[in-house]
Nucleic acid binder design. Structure first.
Length: 278
DNA sequence: AGGAGGAGTGCTCTTACGTCA
DNA sequence: CCTGACGTAAGAGCACTCCTC
């Protein structure tokens, strides 16, 4: 699975945007919570909607289930495990991580001032005696730089790359994995925010255009009702026929037979045919 | 107090594999 | 024996959240 184009936000919002898509995976599974949508989008006057429907109590999410099931969707964040393996998955996953990385962890703990805790699955007492006490890891600058570099090349890692990177960084593979997950999530969030700002601007522009056009329309209507037809035509295109001294009436001929090319109105364009006469 | 970011948790989806008709 | 349908477990990624600094 790779990131090959924008569009979580872009597609989900139904517009294509110019902003850089590189880090946003199309139609990614899961959801992106848009905390600003409820307040800000609701205040939008023009009818630029995000196509939301359904239970308003459920969380708004953008994205879709799975790798290729994108679009807007809602996801009940409190779903009781419907999937076959989600519950056991977690513990198994944890066991896997812990099992395979335990030895590494011991050797890499020079990065931790204290041992990282493991929560929920095993309320293990840490070295420092705290239970479930998370000790925040701060990556060093070189570590962050290397991770960033790797992220630029591949926004997701295969197991081999993960192992290699972890070894280089003297971190646990799990930590590398989590870093990439967070990086992807936060990149996506930023992209979504940018997209939102862009849409907001588009919306404002459209609203202004709409107002201006409405105003123009009103003016033209007013003009129409107060002036005879020929007065409304642009002066440059409407010229009195010098021979018959009248302004052509399109209704009499062209309207009755619009395909009759011979039937021309009695006005002519002085620019395209300055010497024309009836 | 609030933001940044590392980490835990729960969920969905895909894939591989075994079983059965 | 082969094949397609089906169920299940494993693995991966994501959203959401918590928590520390």
């Amino acid at each position: 699975m790779g990131f090959d184009g924008l569009s979580d936000a872009g597609l989900a919002l139904g517009l294509s945007l110019n902003s850089s898509p590189s880090m946003v995976k199309p139609n990614t599974m899961g959801s992106t919570k848009l905390p600003w949508v409820t307040e800000t989008m609701a205040s939008f006057e023009p009818s630029l909607t995000l196509g939301l429907s359904g239970d308003p109590n459920k969380k708004l999410v953008v994205g879709g289930g799975g790798d290729d099931h994108g679009g807007l969707c809602r996801q009940d964040s409190t779903v009781i495990s419907g999937g076959g393996s989600s519950f056991s998955n977690v513990s198994v996953k944890r066991e896997r991580e812990l099992g395979s990385e335990e030895s590494e962890r011991v050797s890499n703990d020079n990065n931790y001032s204290r041992l990282m805790s493991t929560t929920s699955v095993d309320d293990v007492e840490d070295d420092d005696g705290s239970i479930n006490g998370r000790k925040k890891l701060r990556l060093t600058k070189p570590q962050s730089a290397l991770l960033e570099e790797a992220f630029k090349l591949h926004s997701s890692l295969n197991p081999k790359q993960k192992q290699e990177l972890a070894r280089e960084l003297k971190l646990r593979p799990r930590q590398v994995e989590v870093w990439f997950q967070n990086r992807r999530a936060r990149t996506k969030l930023k992209q979504t925010e940018m997209d939102f700002e862009h849409l907001k601007k588009c919306c404002e522009t459209l609203r202004d255009d709409n107002r201006r056009l409405h105003k123009e329309l009103q003016e033209l209507k007013a003009l129409k009702s107060s002036q005879p037809f020929y007065m409304q035509l642009p002066a440059a295109t409407l010229t009195m026929c010098p021979s018959c001294e009248r302004i052509g009436d399109t209704k009499s001929s062209a309207v009755k037979n619009p395909f009759n090319m011979a039937a021309k109105p009695h006005y002519f364009n002085s620019f395209t045919n300055p010497s024309a006469a009836c």
